[in-house]
Design a protein around this nucleic acid. Sequence first.
DNA 1: CGTCGATTTGAAATCTATCAACGATGGTGG
DNA 2: CCACCATCGTTGATAGATTTCAAATCGACG
Lengths: 269, 269
Amino acid sequence: MLSALVQKLDSLEPLSDEAMSRLARLPVRLANFVPHEELVVEARPRGDVRVVVEGVAARVKLLDAGGRQAILGLLLPGDVDDSDAFVETLDHGIVAITACRIAQLPRLAFEQLLLDFPDVGRAFRRMARQSEAIARVWLANMGQRSADRQGAHLLCELRTRLSAVGMGESDGFTNPLTQEHLANALGISAVHMNRVMQHLRELGLIRVNGRLLRFPSARKIEEYAGFDPAYLAAEGRAAAPNEEGNAGAPRRERRAAAGDGHSIAVERE
Amino acid sequence: MLSALVQKLDSLEPLSDEAMSRLARLPVRLANFVPHEELVVEARPRGDVRVVVEGVAARVKLLDAGGRQAILGLLLPGDVDDSDAFVETLDHGIVAITACRIAQLPRLAFEQLLLDFPDVGRAFRRMARQSEAIARVWLANMGQRSADRQGAHLLCELRTRLSAVGMGESDGFTNPLTQEHLANALGISAVHMNRVMQHLRELGLIRVNGRLLRFPSARKIEEYAGFDPAYLAAEGRAAAPNEEGNAGAPRRERRAAAGDGHSIAVERE
DNA sequence: CGTCGATTTGAAATCTATCAACGATGGTGG
DNA sequence: CCACCATCGTTGATAGATTTCAAATCGACG
């Protein structure tokens, strides 16, 4: 039931067997939603904790007038609607993209779990951080890069996150989002999104067959998109304090020419 | 020293007098930074908690090639660099926009404080949420609206946040950001940002005099920008409007237009 | 077969970036 | 006091990216 969540938490912060089994045995209420249906309409100070079990949902914000809604983030299986923290502004909600199955955890049971298992609490905190990190990466990508690269980046993220929850084939995935969804996520028009996809196809970076999307070369499209999966990785300890004896850090770093640009006064005590 | 932080936390979650005095008496190390200087170069898993005491800083992400850097968020007095949560990707750091004074809290003392005063912990959690909410609002604004409205929105946010920490006059504020900073925050070019400002002036929505920026009608520009201050409000408590009555700091503006933002106004504890 | 949603296409209107200047201002050092 | 420099704001011209509108195509499905 919550296996995607358990798997994700465990990858962020290794959990004890007991914690995992307790998590798996939490009493949950299940609910199904159809595409377009709203999971969360408004701030709910003490609502249950909601976990996506199956399907894809999105955080959305209604735009000025008509029906258009900006997509601020994606919720895949195992993702949480931000547990204790959900304080959205009036027009920030969550809607189902595909058909979704949602588990609702009673808040009290959830908080008791956190008290009993500090490692679970840590794992949830890491997950929240990751969600914020994703938001900032979106922010960084949205304004500065060309629409083509933004699109490629979003597809890379989608592939990585989907395959992390077992929804990816070896070299591709079944794309749950329509071009209009993708456009709303990038803040461009659906027509232009279509042209972006065409361009990526022409470049040989993606191949589309119905809903199936394949990356002939993961390396190539990631390079084109400037995609660095680090922000999605479970890097609880990745950036160890200081790599003293850190033999063979598998960190792939590329900030070769960090040097020019703005000169910076260094030296801080 | 930490008065801006204390005031902000208290507005998010009312604190006991004891908690506040304990907070104010935390041992801190102070450090000064000049514009462009990096406050946080890279993730530091166990670094101190850093609080902006004075000045303005920004979360930035270096862009592909040259010196340009996208601004992902602003840190004003009272804001925290999100301490333990800082999991950024390689090129995400914090730099000083204006001259800054930063307080660094020893992590151990900080965590002990959280243990002793659960309400302080709640307040910090609310603050983190607010920071994430701001990031999502930026996300929503960046792609969908026209540059003019984005710009107006950013100015509205700036005014609201600055006046929340006592850095705003009644109908305006001293803008710490250059047009290039604003452009980097919105993801547009500096030249275009300049034209945005001109347009807003022509519309009568803002009036500029050196670094001083005034809103002839707060209502009008907020309507134009689609700005809803709810996401900045201290929504822990029931819509309690901002009580002024700042018995403390009498604020008088000196150095009329001299503000180049590069000199810090010191003293005044 | 007809419908609906999703994708695709074309053309014109807008917006935005880029390049290359110029002007204003304040600070610095002679 | 003045020449000089650096930063910031401003302007014009042009190329490029993106939106909008309108319509055609395609596939799944009752």
